[in-house]
Amino acid sequence: MAATLTSKRLSVRDEADAIEMAYDKGWSDGLPVVPPTEGRVRAMLEGARLEANHQVGIIRDRAVVISAEKVAINAVMAGCKPEYFPIVVAAVEAIADHRWSYHGPGTSTGGAGVLMIVNGPIARPLDINAGDNLFGPGWRSNLTIGRAVRLVMRNVCGSRPGLLDRGTLGHPGKLSYVIAENEAESPWTPLHVERGFRAEQSAVTVVASDAPNQFYNQLSNTAEGVLTTLADNMRISGQVMGQSTYVVVLAGEHMHTIANDGWDKKRIRQFLFDNTQNSYAHLKRTGRMTGDIAAGDEQRMRPLTELENILIVAAGGRAGAFSCFIPGWGSAKSSQAVTKEIRS
């Protein structure tokens, strides 16, 4: 028998009244929400075959227990279909994982979004976009899955902008920030397989992230040419000194140019590691590193990040010589990328 729903119930006249109540009570991210009725919430739970009292995660630093019931209510409000729910649940498990370290990206002035990268067979039937207009707009699954996770952060974990969430600037990805890897056309090993999962498993990787930085290279027809431009854009980006996680998203034309030269993700990663280092002198001159410039600082190099912190994803439209990189929030030590299996 299905567990009783224990959340407080509120009476409203109609759907429009419910939408206004959500604004009045501070439950919304600024957009209208779908009213979370019992029937809708039960259907959402059924989408992942979870009982309402199932514990999805605990955020110890905030003393918050996240139940499936609360995740389902917020997923309804975000506009998710019940079949999206297993992805929402896996993403919430990931942000509650101690390695993601919720208290940092959930509160920081640095304004982290939760980039979610979906891999595996679940992406296609749910129409999770891996192509044109990768970061939106236009796809219900991409926009509502990420929104559901953000509403859980707001309503369950307390990350309300202006209160616990103190982002100085924030960014549009804080509304929703979901992509899939274009496994159908990618010549490379999928991200989740690189991170220890089997290709036939579905998984979501969460990364506390800045906004995407698009770069242009419409001239090169070699891997080294395209990646030289990317490295030049990346070298001074994000926190620079923080040694963050970096997600590099290579879209259609660049993906083919690089793959045609026989480069795999490992070689791309190594090239970016080698070509994004900064001299101590430059970091000190530009107000990023403390201390006076010392002898040898012009030659002494500091990696932008560690090799394993560079995640490569094949995604984006087929046409256009554009790709992007996404600097992670803070340092990779402060918040690690976390991958969880999607169980549907």
């Binding site: 959340s7 509120l10 009570k25 009725t37 019992e38 919430v41 996240i66 209510i73």
Partner: peptide, 8 residues
């Protein structure tokens, strides 16, 4: 109609 409270 009734709705459920999404907050903890």
């Amino acid at each position: 109609m009734e709705i459920l409270d999404p907050t903890t």
